[in-house]
């Protein structure tokens, strides 16, 4: 199992408590399910079946509804992700500027495929569609806020180095 999951295990209790508090606070807001899922994914890193069941119970809705929403949206994932999620934009502008080659290089460097986590749990690779920085194409995003623009395949190792610790 990946490192990511173990750290989750260790903090299990507190994470559930925090999620529960969030649900309590937003319960009155109609249609809060998606917001709750966003929160849960930010806490746990992904949305395993137990977390979904917990949410369903707390919100008083069927588990199938929660599952239906989780599977509909690309942003939600039921697979654990790396500590650093490396997102490669494959939107039109990035594609035209050669993002596929950046992605390929990344897969080679990290020796994993798309949606897979590296052995040490440090990285996972994801394809995304347009990060809204098309003028900087091709764009790579690590985590939520570290944007890299005009990336060439050769820059990939340099970018990863910062996160290798």
């Amino acid at each position: 199992m990946s490192l990511e999951q173990c750290t989750v295990c260790a903090r299990h209790e507190t994470l559930y408590q925090e999620l529960d508090a969030f649900i309590e606070k937003n319960r009155h807001r109609p249609g809060a399910l998606i917001e709750v899922l966003h929160k849960a994914q930010s806490l746990f890193g992904f949305l395993p079946a137990e977390v979904q069941a917990f949410i369903a119970k707390q919100l008083g809705i069927p588990e199938s509804t929660v599952f239906g929403v989780v599977t509909f949206y690309h942003y939600f994932t039921m697979k654990p992700r790396g500590q650093n999620q490396v997102k490669v934009c494959l939107g039109t502008a990035c594609y035209v500027k050669g993002a596929d080659r950046v992605l390929e290089r990344l897969k080679e460097e990290l020796k994993v495929g798309i949606e897979e986590v590296t052995q040490d749990g440090r990285f996972s690779i994801h394809e995304v569609r347009c990060l809204g920085a098309c003028s900087m194409a091709p764009v790579v995003l690590i985590g939520e806020k570290d944007f890299f623009g005009r990336v060439t395949p050769d820059e990939v190792p340099k970018i990863l180095k910062k996160y290798r610790g």
Binding site: L131, A133, S135, V139, F147
Partner: peptide, 8 residues
């Protein structure tokens, strides 16, 4: 902006 940040 996001693109400015992407550019450093």
């Amino acid at each position: 902006g996001t693109c400015g940040i992407a550019a450093g």
